[in-house]
Amino acid sequence: MKEEKEESNRRNFLKLGLLAGTATIAGFGLKNKIFAGDIEETGEKVKVLTTDGRVVEVDSSMVAHPSEAKLAQFNVREGIPGKKFIMVIDLARCANARKCVEGCQSMHGMLPPIEYIKVKKMQDSDLGAPYWFPQTCYQCDNPPCTKVCPVDATFKRSDGIVGIDSDRCIGCKFCMAACPYSARTFNFGRPEQKEFSEKHNADKDKCCATKSSTEGTVSKCDFCPESSAKGILPSCVSECPNGTIFFGDELEDAVTNGEETFRLSELLKKRAGYRQFEELGTKPRVYYLPPVERNFPFEEATEVHNQVE
């Protein structure tokens, strides 16, 4: 009796899953309408992954990436529908090459010492081995930073990204106090930075919805939302020579570093993925894979960085 019930529950569940799958396809269709106008069927079939992990075949026209022009009409506060961006950082691969830092700085038009992504030397315990620890804004799912903002200038989007509206921010810096990871930086108008931003006014924010060079406001890593929407990997991911950083979509259950692609759930399971300071309850969207069986031995940094005021 009981078994039967369980069986029927499972069947219901499967049915639900199927429905969800169809809904996703319908979602793709909808997105197609929004972004690409009326596109003819190409007849070419591609395999896509549904939210519940099944592979289905659809016409390639249905999965076209949204066109740039249409993307601009996006409400930056709401995010890209049908996406949930996620990042995985494999600590076993990081050799402190700092290419992510430089890539990010040139992408966002930021000069050192401002770093949206930092690489820190960490050592968890006295006898524990030191390791390199790349750190971004974690785009927390329960973000303490957006909660405290008095004017809604920093907000959580449906695609998981925590964005900043630099036209709204009043510069109270409360969000910086609230972020336990010190992920935010403030634009104090460092003269070199100001000059640089002005010079590169045209090509600033190649990747971002909101300007990050507004003096007197907060900025931070934002997972490069516009590139991400176009399927272009964030700079830190593509610049890393060691493939340390993986980026992807939680709904697709896939992450890639540009060369290798993994099933997210399997990767986290196999490599015991964790999030930094889980106990704070911030629910970061960045997972770490522990530094076991490393690709490189740990070497102290020989150079000092960012010493210039």
Binding site: P150, V151, C169, I170, G171, K173, G216
Partner: peptide, 19 residues
Amino acid sequence: AMGRPDRLHYLLLHGRIQS
């Protein structure tokens, strides 16, 4: 202490009670 004192009035325009 404010980074953008020129936007002080945003507190009235966009103020949110949870802050």
